[in-house]
Every structure is written in C-alpha cells, then in structure tokens.
Design a protein around this nucleic acid. Structure first.
Lengths: 186, 186
DNA sequence: GACTTACTGCGACAATTTGGCGCATTTTTG
DNA sequence: CAAAAATGCGCCAAATTGTCGCAGTAAGTC
C-alpha cells in the first residue's frame, strides 16, 4: 500500500525507542527500523527505557511487554506522561487479551503478537488509527488458551503475585509457576 | 471488596443494553444483571441494537462481538457517538487480539472472553474509569472451571458432536470425551 | 541489627492425566 | 443400502500436576 519509508521521511520527529530484552532480536528490529528512516535508540530494560524516556522522550516506541525488570506497560505510562503525543506499540510473544486491553488503555496504539516484522511495526506506528476491517477468524480459542488467559487476568489483578494468584485460583503455586513460565498455548 | 450491587444502586443512570444473538445466554445474562440493579434492555441483532442506541442511548452496554447481521464494534461506535460517556464491554467466545485492540480503541472499556459471568461483566462495567488500577483482586472461578465452561459452550455450539468439538478446539477427542464424562470442576 | 513473615524459584517424585493408537458399534447421510 | 462419521472404551507411553522441602530475598517490626 502506501510507501512506508516516504511517510517516515516526512515526519517532523523520527525518534524511536526500541525496548526488548532479547538483544539480537532488538538490534535486528532496531536496524530494520533505522533503515526505514527512524532515529532509533535501543534499550534492554525497563529501568533504562524509563530513564531514556525522561531524558529525551521519543516520538515513537516499540515495547516488549515482558521484561526482566518489569513491564512494558510502565514505559507506556511514562512515555504518555512525558509526551502525550507519542505513539507506541506493544510487541510480545505472550499475546493475550487481558494485556492487550491493558496496553491499549495505557495508551499504546497497537499490540502486536510476535513474530512481527519491521513492516508490521512501522505500519502500526504510523497508521493514523485508521483501524480497518476487523473481520477475523471464526475459530474459537482452544480450551487451554481460554484457561491461560483467565490465569493471566487474575495474575494481573493480583499484581503479579504468584502465591496470591494461586490462592485465588485455588491451584497449586508450583503448577501456576510452571504454567506462567511457559508461553501461551495456541 | 466493594459491593457491586451497592455501587450499582448509586448510579444516576442504570440503563444497560445487552446484545447477544444467543437468546438463552442473553436472557440469562440480562436477568443476572437486572438482579444486580441494572435496567436492562435486550437485543439480538446489530440492527435492533443500533436503533435502540439511537432512541435511548443507555449508560452501559454488554455487546457480543460476532452477530448474525454484523459486528458488535458497530454498536460500540454508534453508542460512543450517541453518548460518549457510555461504558461498554465486549464479550466474545472467539476472542482474538486484533479485535480486542479494535474494541478498546473504538471505545469499549473492556473485552472479556466468554465464558464471563454476570459478576465479571458488572465489575468491568463499573471498574474505575480509564485507570484499571490494581483494584480489588477478585474471587474468581478456578482456571479449570473457566476452561470447562468454554468447552461446554463450544460443545453446545457443535450440537453436542464430540468429534466436531474436539476438532474446533483442536484437542484430542479422547481427552474431550474424558472431560465431558466428568462433572464440572469447582 | 536481629527477627518475623511472605514470596519466589526450583529440584525431586509419585500420582494423574493426556496423547494417540486400534476396534467394535451405532448413527448419519447420500 | 452402503459408505462415512461418530462414539465408547481399553491400553500404554509420555507429559503434566500435586506435594514437599529448602534456600535466597524483599519488607515490616522491635
């Protein structure tokens, strides 16, 4: 469709923060976005990213949700605070609805499940909210997926406290721990 | 924590639209929400719902995403147009992230994957504004219970055809058979 | 600082559950 | 009626869960 690179070239501010704790993936994504014209700053941790946002709030951000030292949502909030016009997308391998909702409510413009390539990301960053045709698949989620999302939801509500979550769900902490350690079921 | 019914009783406007094309489920949900104090209007199609919204825009809405004659998102938009302060939640058994994002951006306050009970819905409707802050952790269904209900739902939808249900849920027929043979988990 | 309390990650193991066969019977359907 | 689909069920290996225990740690108290 529209030429992404051309659109980027016309931006008044092309600064972009890329936050992901997976270094190789981050550099690869960062480079790809740089090639498309963004001025990329990379970060591998929430702490670093928040500092970066405070110092020089970028116009755009691509944020991983789950990081070693925190949650990408914190960065969304910090960025919205520092610069309300900033546009950011969440990027995560643990896509689930509860967090997608949380991310969008926090101010993210989109939420992409990995793997997403640089074009997807760029498009999401630029798309002026021209949210298109959500005419999605008519396949129900798998039973395990439903269970997983429910767990994620409660986990969020419990402030990421595993013991508390396990108690509320009346399941064993060890089991919950194992489930959380794994990635989302299809 | 806070008593949901009490909170509802204090609302200046308790009108609520329930939109779902599954009649039994809709009436059940509608009744449950009525019991909690809402003034419920039910609707089974997008056309009807949009008309209802135009005539008497409700303060709240619970909308199914997938309907025979359209998309719940249309109703969200219509409602936001008619009454920007309205709060609505999307409810769907076929949750996917793209539509969740779309729904929230369209103005829904939350997006719940079915099965969601009346309490979940009420909580979502009332939950303090934009800030989905770490609120009262809830007293929720067990993870297995949620999975079980989802399975039951799809099973119904497949006309009690085990093989078909297993296929749609992409789970093993043998396993599904065993699950169905047992009674509901707590 | 010393103490107490709660959370967490993780190894180990037995008890269950599941994933996948196959197969003899119904039920459906063309 | 014959082919196709669905069902119920036994069996067994593989994977998951239920429990215990323990050490490390962050937080609150005296």
């Amino acid at each position: 469709m529209c030429d992404v690179a051309a659109a980027i070239a016309e931006l008044p501010d092309r600064t972009l923060l890329v936050l992901d704790d997976d270094a190789p993936l981050r550099t690869r994504l960062g480079r790809a976005l740089e090639q498309r014209g963004f001025e990329v700053v990379q970060s591998g941790s929430v702490g670093e990213a928040v500092r970066a946002v405070r110092d020089h709030a970028p116009a755009f951000a691509v944020l991983d949700l789950r990081l070693d030292d925190g949650n990408g949502l914190q960065v969304v909030e910090a960025l919205q605070m520092a610069r309300p016009d900033a546009r950011c997308v969440m990027l995560t391998g643990y896509g689930n609805i509860a967090t997608a909702v949380a991310a969008v409510k926090a101010g993210a413009v989109d939420y992409l499940p990995k793997p997403a390539n640089a074009d997807d990301v760029a498009r999401a960053l630029l798309s002026a909210g021209a949210e298109a045709k959500t005419q999605p698949p008519e396949n129900p989620m798998s039973a395990d997926r439903v269970r997983w999302e429910h767990i994620q939801r409660i986990y969020e509500l419990c402030g990421h406290n595993i013991s508390e979550t396990a108690r509320r769900l009346s399941m064993h902490r060890r089991t919950l721990q194992r489930i959380l350690a794994k990635r989302a079921p299809r």
